[in-house]
Simulated scan of single mutants.
Amino acid sequence: MRVNRVTADLSEYPDLVVILLGMRVHRPRGILRLIGVGPKLYRSHADRPDGLLSHEDVVWSLFPPHWGARQYWRDLDSLERWTRSEPHRIWWREFLKNSGGTGFWHEAYFARGGIDSVYDDMAPVAGLTRFAPTVPARGRLFSTRQRVRGAAPEVASVVTESSYYEQQATDTQRPDELPGRTV
């Protein structure tokens, strides 16, 4: 029997963004964070925010628990608007204050070219960091739009770079030390 071979015609989606997301549990208390965020995320994508074309849940591994999603967005603008809106903005701000025994990452692939990635508290490494060197997400590498397009975000970031690193220095380091965690 012949294989029915097809392909996706993406001509109507020139600015398509495919994003892979994951949250990995590092410590037992991380299970609570993962379970607590899960239902909220499900509700948020079920509401079909403007620009979200499709969402698929992914289990990257059962041990350690590492769950996530693959999402297809019409364009970076709609993805950025959603990430800066409620309730996503609240979850992200809370995570950046305290990862709760988990790590989070995303990798985004753009139809017009470019790949973006960020890894927060992700040890051991995942995704692109399995083969590419890592650098701190600072300066022009702080936000997705800056990393991929070289331009400042059109919608204000959830947390500014200066406030994030100042808070980290206050919470976890002596003032003369630079934190090693990236955003």
Rank of each mutant, 00 (worst) to 15 (best):
A137G: 12
S163P: 00
D9H: 06
G114Y: 04
L53W: 00
F110K: 07
L141V: 01
S143R: 11
R138I: 15
E154F: 06
M122F: 03
L32P: 00
D47K: 14
A69I: 00
V18I: 14
Y164H: 12
P136M: 14
A69H: 03
M122P: 02
V118K: 12
R149V: 00
Q173N: 12
Y165T: 03
H66C: 10
S54N: 05
A169W: 10
G51P: 05
R112V: 11
I35Y: 07
L178R: 07
G100D: 00
G139S: 02
Y119E: 13
P28K: 05
P87I: 01
E12M: 06
H55V: 13
I31W: 09
R81Y: 06
S85D: 12
G101F: 01
A126G: 04
P179H: 03
A132R: 15
V37C: 08
I19F: 03
M1V: 08
H26W: 12
Q173I: 01
R48F: 04
G114E: 02
G36A: 11
A151H: 01
V3A: 07
R140Y: 04
P14G: 04
F110T: 08
D57W: 14
S61V: 00
P133Q: 09
V183T: 06
L53I: 05
S163W: 05
F63K: 12
L128R: 15
R81K: 12
G22K: 09
W91D: 10
G36L: 08
T144M: 15
S54D: 05
R140Q: 11
A46D: 06
S54I: 00
L52Q: 09
T83K: 02
L53H: 00
P49F: 06
G113K: 09
V155P: 01
R81E: 11
R81F: 01
V125Q: 13
Q168L: 13
R24Q: 04
G180D: 11
Q168C: 08
P133W: 07
G38R: 10
P64C: 10
Q71P: 05
Y72N: 10
V118R: 14
T7A: 13
L79K: 08
D50W: 02
E107C: 04
V6H: 10
L21W: 10
L141P: 00
L10G: 03
P64D: 11
A69E: 02
R140N: 10
V6K: 09
Q71L: 15
I115Q: 10
V183A: 05
I31L: 10
E86G: 05
P124V: 08
F142A: 03
T182E: 06
R27G: 04
P136L: 15
N98L: 03
A111N: 11
M1D: 07
I19M: 14
P49N: 08
D9Y: 06
G22V: 03
H55T: 13
R130I: 07
T170F: 07
I35S: 07
S99E: 15
V155T: 11
R24F: 00
Q146M: 09
V58D: 01
L96K: 01
R89Q: 12
D57F: 14
A69D: 00
R48S: 11
S78A: 14
P136K: 15
E12R: 13
T172I: 09
V155Q: 03
R81Q: 11
W82L: 07
R70L: 13
K40Y: 04
V159S: 08
G30T: 04
A169T: 15
D57N: 14
